[in-house]
Design a binder for these strands. Sequence first.
DNA 1: GCGACAAATTCAATCGATTGATTTATTTTT
DNA 2: AAAAATAAATCAATCGATTGAATTTGTCGC
Lengths: 234, 234
Amino acid sequence: MSPAAGNKAPQKAPNGNRDATDRALIAAGLELFGEYGFNGTSTRMLSQSSGANVSAIAYYFGNKEGLYKAVIEHIVQRATQYIGPACEAIREKEPMLTKLSARKALKTLVESVAHLFVDSDEPKSWALIVMREQARPTEAFDILYYGMMKTLHGQISALIGICTGLPAQGDEAKIRAHTFLGQILVFLSSRETLIRQLGVKKLSDHHVSLIHKVLWAQVAAALKVPMLCRGEDR
Amino acid sequence: MSPAAGNKAPQKAPNGNRDATDRALIAAGLELFGEYGFNGTSTRMLSQSSGANVSAIAYYFGNKEGLYKAVIEHIVQRATQYIGPACEAIREKEPMLTKLSARKALKTLVESVAHLFVDSDEPKSWALIVMREQARPTEAFDILYYGMMKTLHGQISALIGICTGLPAQGDEAKIRAHTFLGQILVFLSSRETLIRQLGVKKLSDHHVSLIHKVLWAQVAAALKVPMLCRGEDR
DNA sequence: GCGACAAATTCAATCGATTGATTTATTTTT
DNA sequence: AAAAATAAATCAATCGATTGAATTTGTCGC
């Protein structure tokens, strides 16, 4: 029986090659799905790039879509490595945050998200995958949403709430959090446009540090905007 | 000879159905490419959805990619209908803009872009297409970039320059313009996340008007941020 | 510690279905 | 009748998935 049949976890894994093969497939999937999209990536490409046989896809992940989901889970796991620490630090001391400390926590969070999406080259392969899921959510979107988006979005809303006096569960705090994320995400999702505008081939260190400065300066300025809603929402 | 052989524009359009067929194909392409992506859309789907025969794709557009480019051109044309007027108004009086009038012009521009990407449902089908081109630019990206992005981005940079004293052609003004666009675009590119956070199925009129308020309030606040760069760039 | 057996894994070969594109024939318009 | 446009049929190529055999690996009686 293939390990993909039972939900997870091989019973006794007599063969040590197990990890090596499915890791190679996930690595290939990350590369190829990111480069060519789901439909643009054939099982044969995945097989060749990973060195594994085509049937290994069905064997380990059920089918191509199963591998795709595994790749998404891997993305969530990697992203968590970047922003997880900042999120947990906030969750721990959230009840006793003051305006000032909340501001500081938000800065840390914004910087770690920016570090992931602006500095690092790693998520460049994620972009197409994540954007596709945003545009046409499949079952895999749940993995992305519950695995990272929801927590991140919620934390930012909470901090905005503390800093501005807005109800953290209200529409305005959520919308503001969305614009904060937008300012950062655009450097991943629309990087090609920025590159062309700047007339360079790649973002230099100088650009990256300037982006960080601009980001925090503008987020900080946005925090000073007084509440706009007329208190109708929760 | 097929009309797609010569680069464009039918010589004398002897058949009245000419326009109807290729328009139907573009409409179908807009729908299907937006829904399933380029690779996910087959020529047979396009044929069935448009009512045209499969061979009409080759006849009018050379091949599937030709139709895809025509769809992108259509997107640019539609977007220009939204934001073109605001852009031209600015270009006309750019030399004599004061800080105050530039601020007002920027507000108009931001609102027309937001009107397109937040209020309207039309660009929802564009999202996947545009995002894909951003992630992996093909030749078609040039159409998007030179047809709308470049002008829009440049105009915003120019207005930021006037409002803040930054050089409009400098890196910081361009980066700031990018974050402004990011705050708006995120409502298209990551709408699914926002929808889930708000706990609704669709953005209500109340949400839309609140988003507009938040957007302008934050952009206005960002304009007050003094220049950050140490004047090294152009 | 050995050899046999079973489970886990890999492999090449092949399935029917679908892909984009082309060809040939027919209809419509001028 | 000539040109333009549509329709139907068909092309080789490739798709995801499956097959059953071959190979590797761990387990267990002895």
